[in-house]
Simulated scan of single mutants.
Amino acid sequence: MIRLLATAALIGSLGAAHAQDRPLDVVATIGMIGDIATHVGGDCVEVTTIMGPGVDPHLYGASASDVRSFQSADVIFYSGYSLEGQLGEVLAKFAERKPTVALAASSIAEGDLIRTDGAYGIDPHLWMDAGLWSRIVPTIAETLSEARPDCAEGFGANAERYVAQLTALDAWVGDAIATIPSGQRTLVTAHDAFAYYGRAYGITVAGIQGISTEAEASVADIRASADLVAATGVPAIFIESTINPRTIQAVIDAVQQQGHDVRVGGQLYSDAMGADGTPGGTYIGMIHENTRTIVEALGGTPPPLPEALADWAEEWNLAKAAP
């Protein structure tokens, strides 16, 4: 009996040691969370992102493979405020069994949220403000530390370094937007995902569709957007990577019918990042590329990146940071 107990204890200790050796299985709903979890977690985590490039979270429904990913996860991160739509009930059930954290809701003060009419109540696109979104980083580090205490020191150091990068990015975006001539500082996009961006960086924002993409833009929406473009004289409007561009083309046609010209200024990342293995496939790159696209199309000149982003720029072979 003593030998059996000793064997069982040995097996148990070996199992615990193996659990500590393997990376934490972390599942994130969107890339803007998954990328940050990867940077904070380092070698101690393995991150799976449910919704990849070009995927609209407003319309997303859980697949059988998603449920299996949630089942095997040690930690689940999601944004919250109904962004994940149909995944909400699934995430609520998993919250009863394992660490399942709504990062936006648990990290960002209510006074900093943008409230809206309709079903959402809260605009869920908080990642568009890099300074605001940086507040989820400590929450990620704390959650991972609770699940893997032996890696806590590394999580903390990685989080501190990443927050410094986002702080520098936040300042750079503001400086870049300020170079747009004041009369052209209006951002017209396919849907209303850039309100936090506009508030943070001093640019007027108008989405043809509302916050959600569940309903098509109406004729009235298109007409109102065309009237705004014609009145302000902005030279460009923008398509989004997760939304069919036909509404943007409809606005362009309506503007031309009023005797004005406007062009597509480029594609912006709104509800999803870019392709894996590209700068836009990172959170920093998403905000950086959006800003360069907006500023250059509206007549501004983006400044060099700050020194705090030199390592990121070098990793992606981009222009050197400012001295």
Score class of each variant (00 low, 15 high):
residue 67 V to Y: 11
residue 73 A to F: 06
residue 74 D to I: 02
residue 112 D to Y: 10
residue 114 I to W: 06
residue 95 A to G: 08
residue 95 A to Q: 10
residue 95 A to D: 06
residue 90 V to Y: 03
residue 101 V to I: 14
residue 107 S to P: 00
residue 108 I to A: 06
residue 89 E to Q: 15
residue 94 F to W: 13
residue 81 Y to I: 08
residue 74 D to M: 09
residue 98 K to Q: 10
residue 120 Y to C: 05
residue 117 D to I: 08
residue 74 D to Q: 09
residue 111 G to T: 09
residue 68 R to D: 14
residue 76 I to G: 00
residue 100 T to G: 04
residue 88 G to F: 01
residue 88 G to W: 01
residue 73 A to D: 01
residue 103 L to A: 00
residue 98 K to M: 06
residue 88 G to N: 03
residue 80 G to M: 03
residue 118 G to T: 10
residue 90 V to D: 02
residue 83 L to A: 01
residue 115 R to D: 11
residue 101 V to N: 01
residue 102 A to R: 02
residue 113 L to C: 09
residue 72 S to R: 15
residue 72 S to N: 13
residue 70 F to M: 10
residue 111 G to L: 08
residue 104 A to Q: 04
residue 104 A to T: 05
residue 113 L to T: 11
residue 71 Q to H: 15
residue 115 R to W: 11
residue 94 F to Y: 13
residue 71 Q to K: 15
residue 80 G to L: 02
residue 86 Q to S: 14
residue 90 V to P: 00
residue 66 D to C: 06
residue 106 S to D: 14
residue 82 S to I: 14
residue 108 I to G: 02
residue 91 L to F: 05
residue 66 D to A: 03
residue 72 S to Q: 14
residue 84 E to I: 03
residue 96 E to P: 00
residue 84 E to R: 06
residue 88 G to I: 00
residue 94 F to R: 07
residue 66 D to H: 05
residue 86 Q to R: 15
residue 72 S to Y: 07
residue 118 G to H: 11
residue 86 Q to G: 10
residue 113 L to V: 11
residue 84 E to V: 03
residue 86 Q to E: 13
residue 69 S to H: 13
residue 102 A to D: 05
residue 99 P to C: 06
residue 109 A to M: 09
residue 120 Y to G: 09
residue 120 Y to T: 06
residue 120 Y to L: 14
residue 120 Y to V: 09
residue 73 A to Y: 04
residue 83 L to K: 04
residue 112 D to N: 12
residue 76 I to V: 10
residue 109 A to E: 12
residue 120 Y to Q: 10
residue 75 V to M: 07
residue 98 K to G: 03
residue 74 D to A: 08
residue 103 L to P: 00
residue 97 R to A: 14
residue 120 Y to W: 12
residue 68 R to N: 12
residue 69 S to C: 10
residue 72 S to W: 04
residue 113 L to Y: 12
residue 117 D to S: 13
residue 118 G to S: 11
residue 71 Q to E: 15
residue 109 A to F: 07
residue 70 F to Y: 10
residue 118 G to R: 12
residue 81 Y to W: 13
residue 77 F to P: 00
residue 112 D to G: 05
residue 111 G to E: 09
residue 70 F to G: 00
residue 110 E to M: 12
residue 75 V to C: 04
residue 66 D to R: 04
residue 79 S to A: 15
